[in-house]
Design a protein around this nucleic acid. Structure first.
Lengths: 126, 126
DNA sequence: CACATTGTTTACGTTAACGTAAACGTAGGC
DNA sequence: GCCTACGTTTACGTTAACGTAAACAATGTG
């Protein structure tokens, strides 16, 4: 079920990006699809990585920063020697995300006001 | 109280950006400080604009998009002829912000898991 | 007065994240 | 056998958002 595989154009159309973008991500070392002949074949894991990269992008992360976050899940990084620095990294990310969340909530509150003024304006126009 | 004025370097250091950045924003028409002689003098309003631009940047907005949002508050845009399109714009912004908020919450949940694993790892090491 | 600080304009340089295009391979269908 | 769809590599182009540097003005301080 989770061992499905995808072509490059399948993923491109699913995520609304171009094949160029996907190859670019590979060129940057963000994903490592296997090959059948010379064609790229993407696993379910590759697909999730792309999905997470795009999620990172939506909230203003650079590609590098996105993979940094994604790789936090990678057990390879979880050797004891680096557990403390890992926790520190997680804390940093968390703080930044929380500020972003506050920023978004502030902006949403602002939009609420604008909308209220708009609707008030429409009532008066009636 | 709100009629204070600021020099370019004051604002730069307050916001942790360079004077070059502030001049660049002016060059792009994002702010319009007045002049005393040839020196730029920033009002409290200018200062808020910069603050809001930076808030937009933090959540991944382009400079243009930030001012677009900021200018929603501008009464000049609130003429009846455009009230409907204004409401539509507000709705678009809101939806995107809500998705960003979900993205952030998802990512925070992920970080929670990672942190839990870390702490578990540390306990076992003790 | 020298000089350090803070400001100015003008202009070329840089990085990230792709876009665009050329030139070609391969597999399936008529 | 040719076309079409889908894939490949290589490489130059583009845009946003500044950085960096040069060359100069204004202003206060020892």
């Amino acid at each position: 079920m989770t061992d499905r595989s995808y072509s490059i154009s399948q993923l491109a159309s699913e995520f609304g990006i171009t094949t160029r973008t996907i190859r670019f991500y590979e060129e940057k070392g963000l994903i490592h699809p296997r090959r059948q002949g010379q064609k790229r074949v993407y696993s379910a894991g590759d697909r999730v990585r792309i999905k997470l990269i795009l999620r990172g992008k939506r909230i203003g992360m650079s590609l590098q920063e996105s993979v940094e976050v994604i790789d936090l899940y990678d057990p390879a990084h979880n050797n004891r020697s680096q557990l403390h620095s890992l926790i520190h990294t997680v804390q940093d990310k968390r703080e930044r995300l929380l500020r972003q969340k506050r920023d978004i909530e502030d902006m949403l509150a602002g939009l609420d006001e604008v909308q209220a003024l708009c609707e008030q304006g429409l009532e008066n126009a009636d």
